Amino acid sequence: MIQTLKKWLVGYSEEDEQTEENETRIGELRKGPLPRHVAIIMDGNGRWAKKRGMPRVAGHRAGMKTVRHITRAADALGIEALTLYSFSTENWKRPQDEVNYLMGLPEEFLRTDVDELVERNIRVGMLGDRKNLPDHTLEAIDKFKEATKDNTGLRLNFALNYGSRSEIIRGVQRIIDDVQSGKLDKDALDESLFGQYLYTADLPEPDLMIRTSGEVRISNFMLWQLAYSELWFTDVQWPDFTKESFYEAIEDFQRRSRRYGAV
């Protein structure tokens, strides 16, 4: 098949070229156990920009380039799902100009990236509460979802206006409604069924969670889903997180023994 993928207009770098060395690295990683689902807390954009005397929004723009690189890397490895913590329910407390910029990123991403995502067979989704999101943000997200709905490869999920505690409360409220309406027998409720009431109902639980920028906490991200995930922290700020950083996390995952409470 003739390669028709365009170079993404914002953030393309030579790092994304499929060199023989890179293909060899990917081949080696594929020989070991790969996480089905990788979740990432993309931290450090603002500090990256401040360190360079730039406005915080410059860090978010640089961070979007990293999203592209890591999406390509996950796709090349054959990972099933990649979830990126993009905007939390607590992030509304940030300065209004920064919030406005972040709410515009889905439109920019749609304009520059949708063609490649379609051709790469990547399906885009959103996890989070649509309430309070601007109409233009929701419109961009919905266009992404529509354009990629038939794709069967990597699931690229953006956790937007997402908070795990509110997600769990929302799930409990829906369960109560279903019990009261007779749709659900409360004695049938177990962990597996509860998971079907969360935003991630159609996704495997993350096998690996990565957080950048030196913070060692999960910040209200997938509290239920990360129960048995492997956690990997790095001091590297998100705009500087490369595919090599990603491969390092995967290699560390492959060295771990996952016992799920057993001996």
Rank of each mutant, 00 (worst) to 15 (best):
R259F: 05
L34I: 02
G125N: 14
D185V: 02
M1C: 09
S181C: 03
K65E: 15
F194G: 06
G261E: 03
L110K: 07
I79R: 00
G261S: 04
V172D: 06
T234H: 00
P33E: 07
K243D: 10
Y247M: 01
V99A: 03
M103N: 10
S164A: 15
F144G: 01
R94F: 07
E139V: 00
K149S: 13
I70M: 09
P134A: 08
A76Y: 05
S88R: 01
F241E: 05
N45C: 13
S164G: 14
E244T: 12
A201T: 06
D240C: 07
L203F: 11
A147F: 02
D207L: 03
H136W: 04
K51I: 04
P95T: 12
F233I: 02
Q3F: 08
R155L: 09
R256W: 01
L189E: 01
G104L: 03
P106G: 10
K65P: 01
A73C: 05
N100G: 07
H37Y: 10
A188K: 13
S257Y: 12
R47W: 10
W8I: 14
L184S: 07
A249H: 01
S219G: 11
P95V: 08
P239R: 08
D150Q: 13
R30Q: 15
W8Y: 11
L154R: 11
M1F: 09
L84G: 05
W238Q: 04
V216K: 15
